[in-house]
Write a protein that binds this DNA or RNA. Structure first.
Lengths: 195, 195
DNA sequence: ACAATATATGAACAATCGTTCAGATAGAAC
DNA sequence: GTTCTATCTGAACGATTGTTCATATATTGT
């Protein structure tokens, strides 16, 4: 008995990626088998290969789409504002965007080493584009005398690392609202870079 | 042919843990096989079980020893100083200690999900002890009016996350010396928490 | 020199891995 | 209603997994 429930091409594909996303985030890429993914979707393992050439591509596609959406959303945000305003928007954007996609974020930086060298290079390039957006803000503010940053490259990485820390503890419905979290982090980031 | 090179109990044990440490850090716990570890040591896979009950314990022991060394070294540091001085020492300590053990650090927070629940709880407890040491410093400074921190718990996690960012980019022999790195991060941390 | 012990080998176990593919069937097109 | 095609099953492939164990030997203690 095959094809038990009709024509599913447009439904099965997204469901596979969603299941892979969940399982990769929870157990790690290497620890998840194609059969586990298939079982979550309600299909046999062989059927997955109608939608992905192999397991590696499944991971790669999830990461690439996440990074592209991140850059796209950031692009919508960017305006010609003064550096401090831009930094405040960046902090809020980063926190909100990432908290909405905990699984994607987790994978995008935990599973980098499981990418083939070519795929890794592509994801790294996207990541660097994102970092550059923040560094430009910091650099602009530094030039304008608003910021006092010893090293803009390090400050960029430090700010992102600090903001990423939110993901390790924030749970919606917890002690703090999103607005409060944003406020607290902005307070620290702002003071850290200001002259 | 067995026991090809004499009595090695006191040598093989550490070599197995070192090999496991390296391989786990490079490829991830789930992606490393017992045979790979054995090969690195120059021994058959079965011999590993003279030194560990199973693969899981190998990971757990590496993580526990790392966390215990971290807490022990931190304990040596702690003195009765004022909060700002204590924070400066903590920043320097954290950066230097962690940069000296990149593999252990990497494992200690990338492989948490591969621990059994009991082992996970034990490592988490050690980690919390470390965080508490920093939070105490921040709390003391807050009480003394030296710091202006909206939320000491979040500030604790934010500072640690920020400092951990060093590990993603610092390479000894690079553009910056350890002293410079320490200086840059202290500058940012100090401003971020100060009133 | 001999007995005891610690430490290794190497084969074997069942289970699971990613992937392929011939065959089956449901829905779309006519 | 028939043909065509996209989609899935189910079995199979060889490779690899963590772990066990009977066996062998180098070293230690006497």
């Amino acid at each position: 008995m095959a094809r038990t429930q009709g024509s599913h091409s447009d439904i099965t594909g997204p469901r596979i990626r969603k299941a892979a996303l969940n399982l990769f985030a929870r157990h790690g890429y290497a620890a998840v088998s194609m059969r586990q993914i298939a079982k979550e979707v309600g299909v046999q393992a062989g059927a997955l290969y109608n939608y992905t050439p192999d397991k590696q591509h499944l991971l790669f596609r999830l990461m690439r789409e996440h990074m592209q959406e991140l850059l796209s959303a950031l692009g919508d945000l960017q305006q010609g504002q003064d550096a401090q305003e831009a930094l405040r928007h960046f902090v809020g954007f980063h926190i909100r965007f990432h908290l909405q996609r905990p699984d994607e974020v987790f994978i995008a930086y935990m599973e980098l080493r499981n990418l083939t060298p070519e795929n890794f290079a592509e994801i790294e390039d996207l990541r660097r584009q994102y970092e550059n957006a923040l560094e430009n803000i910091l650099h602009t503010g530094q030039q304008a005398g608003q910021f006092a940053i010893p090293d803009t490259k390090i400050a960029t990485l430090a700010v992102i690392a600090m903001l990423n820390g939110v993901m390790t503890w924030y749970r919606s419905g917890g002690r703090l609202s999103l607005d409060e979290v944003e406020q607290i982090y902005w307070n620290m980031v702002h003071k850290a870079v200001t002259a």
